[in-house]
């Protein structure tokens, strides 16, 4: 414990020295510098970039088209597994991770699934965090009637059965231009964000309620700092911790929710075109794998590892961001 203590002290000392010695740089360039110095965050960023590359060059990495069905090849095991007496189920390097229920290559589906899952993991996270943060900030900062109204509204949204809402949205919008827009991505993002923001908003509000009574906010007010400056320069950066954690947790949730919603016909339309950009997602694979957990375990394991790794990457980036944006931690 003693080391931690001295570390902290020396860190802040060096901050003071740093500020004393060099010309002030902007908050953001400082943050970027600090982020790039965090090895875990850099590794995570590299991993995400790698996934983006995989997503783009998926046709080169995939051995087959992800929609191609190989007759008589259902539930083939991963390449290194041999099943005694059942050559038709034993692994083959033509299908490195085996095949799914109707004989499609798991490896190729995994590679193509990167596309959908990156988009589906990232975009709703941004939407959800944005909505939740704004509402939480406003609610906590203004308090009183604004807070009461927004939070009661949040309670209503949180309580009514979202599934019913999705079913109706699907029935009503499926064949309209909105529903078909971007292969159904728009509806999907809307659905995922609408459900997710309440938790974030309440977290941010809680932070703001506590922060705005702290000395430094009172001091800022006393010296006449404008409201929006207090909101965005003081309250927001200091509420980032919970926001970032929520962000990292929204990613796997959204990837799985996408699959559940897609199966119900909400959001992504199942692809039938061999040239489709988003033919499959990891979430789809997980749900397919659920039925085959004994019959072909890699159908489940492969996407599960992928989702876990992407979650881990976002966690590291989040940790790095939080540290980088914290003006008290400079080194």
């Amino acid at each position: 414990m003693a080391t931690t203590l001295t570390n902290t002290n020396s860190v802040s000392d060096s901050v003071e020295q740093a500020f004393a010695q060099r010309a002030p740089r902007s908050l953001w360039s400082d943050a970027r510098r600090r982020l790039l110095r965090n090895k875990a965050a850099v590794a995570a960023l590299l991993y995400i970039s790698f996934l983006i590359v995989v997503a783009i060059i998926a046709p080169l990495l995939a051995l087959h088209n992800p929609l191609d069905i190989f007759q008589n090849n259902s539930y083939r095991q991963a390449a290194w597994i041999t099943v005694p007496n059942r050559p038709e189920a034993s692994g083959s390097w033509a299908f490195p991770l085996g095949t799914d229920a109707i004989g499609r290559d798991v490896w190729s589906r995994l590679v193509y699934g990167t596309r959908t899952s990156l988009v589906v993991g990232f975009v709703p996270m941004v939407f959800t965090l944005f909505l939740g943060t704004v509402i939480g900030l406003v609610s906590g900062f203004f308090g009183g009637a604004v807070d009461a109204f927004l939070m009661r509204f949040a309670e209503i949204v949180y309580s009514f059965p979202a599934f019913l809402f999705f079913i109706i949205v699907m029935t009503a919008l499926k064949d309209t231009p909105i529903g078909k827009f971007w292969n159904g991505f728009v509806i999907l993002f809307g659905a995922l964000s609408l459900v997710g923001w309440v938790g974030v908003a309440r977290l941010v509000r809680g932070q703001v309620l506590s922060l705005k009574e702290k000395e430094f906010i009172e001091a800022a007010r006393a010296i006449g700092v404008r409201q929006h400056n207090i909101l965005f320069k003081h309250l927001l950066p200091n509420s980032l911790g919970p926001i970032i954690i929520s962000g990292a947790f929204i990613v796997p949730g959204a990837i799985i929710a996408e699959a559940v919603l897609s199966y119900l016909g909400i959001g992504l339309r199942p692809a039938t075109d061999r040239n489709a950009l988003f033919p499959v997602s990891w979430g789809n694979m997980i749900l397919d794998g659920k039925a085959a957990i004994t019959a072909q375990p890699w159908l489940m394991i492969a996407p599960a590892i992928s989702i876990a790794s992407i979650t881990l990457a976002f966690t590291f980036i989040g940790d790095g961001l939080r540290d980088a944006l914290d003006p008290r931690e400079a080194n």
């Binding site: 041999t82 059942r86 004994t294 375990p297 890699w298 590892i305 881990l312």
Partner: peptide, 17 residues
Amino acid sequence: ALVLPILAACGGTAPAT
């Protein structure tokens, strides 16, 4: 470590092998 338990699990759940 993340992969290992899942691998172990697959050993347990795949009587096919």
